[in-house]
Amino acid sequence: GKMTGIVKWFNADKGFGFITPDDGSKDVFVHFSAIQNDGYKSLDEGQKVSFTIESGAKGPAAGNVTSL
């Protein structure tokens, strides 16, 4: 299901970062391709987001990332 969290950091040049889930679980990798907006796909440190957990090739990653 949907989770919420805070963006820990995001490197716009490399197109990835990490989200710290509100439930205290392990930080989740986020790739820019998972960001659900029409414009420039980037996130800001400290931004609140909702997301799902998808299993990627390198382990769990955030999917369906939407800013709240």
Rank of each mutant, 00 (worst) to 15 (best):
T20W: 04
K26L: 07
Y40H: 11
K2Y: 11
A62Q: 00
D27W: 01
V65Y: 01
K48Y: 12
G59K: 05
A57E: 14
F10T: 03
G59C: 05
G17A: 04
K2S: 10
S42M: 11
F16I: 09
F10C: 02
G1C: 13
N37S: 15
G24E: 05
T66F: 08
W9K: 08
S67W: 08
G63Q: 15
W9C: 13
D13I: 13
T4G: 03
L68P: 06
P21Y: 01
K2I: 09
F29S: 05
F32I: 12
K58P: 06
N11E: 05
K48F: 10
D44R: 14
K14M: 10
F51W: 02
F29E: 05
N64E: 10
F29P: 09
V28Y: 04
I6Q: 12
K48A: 13
N37A: 15
G63P: 02
G1E: 07
K2N: 13
Q36T: 14
V28F: 04
G17D: 02
T4A: 04
A62I: 03
K58H: 08
E54Y: 14
G46S: 04
F16H: 08
K58I: 07
Y40T: 11
M3V: 13
K58C: 07
A12V: 11
V30H: 01
K41A: 11
K58Q: 09
Q36H: 11
D22T: 09
G39I: 09
I53F: 08
F29C: 05
Q47W: 04
V65W: 00
A61M: 11
D44L: 13
D44P: 10
G63W: 11
G5S: 00
K58E: 08
A57H: 15
V65A: 02
A57W: 11
G46V: 00
V30R: 01
L43Y: 02
T52I: 12
H31F: 02
F51V: 01
T4S: 10
A62T: 02
I53T: 08
G63D: 10
T66C: 12
G56D: 09
H31Y: 03
F10D: 03
S42T: 14
D13L: 14
I53S: 06
H31C: 04
D23G: 10
E54G: 09
G56R: 13
G15E: 03
F32E: 12
F51T: 01
V65C: 05
